[in-house]
């Protein structure tokens, strides 16, 4: 779960970068940036959760 979390963090960052560098019009760029941030937050939640579960074990 921790590895998936970190992979999601990196994937979210790549989505944000791609949107900012490649997209020119404001609306889709904004949408992809927010989607990328959402993926990053999901990754962060997974990493924290895996840490918590490991400690409880």
């Amino acid at each position: 779960m921790k590895l998936i979390g970190f992979l999601l963090l990196v994937a979210g960052w790549i989505i944000v970068l791609t949107a900012v560098i490649l997209l020119r019009s404001a609306a889709p760029r904004m949408g992809f940036v927010l989607a990328g941030m959402g993926v990053e937050i999901l990754g962060l939640v997974l990493v924290f959760r895996s840490h918590l579960l490991r400690r409880r074990d």
């Binding site: 970190f6 960052w13 944000v16 970068l17 900012v20 940036v33 990328g36 941030m37 990053e40 990754g43």
Partner: peptide, 19 residues
């Protein structure tokens, strides 16, 4: 938006790298 990209870089690049 530029600041948001910076935050995304901190979470998506710096945190996985340092961990």
């Amino acid at each position: 938006l530029a600041q948001l990209v910076g935050v995304a870089t901190l979470l998506g690049f710096v945190l996985p790298l340092t961990y």
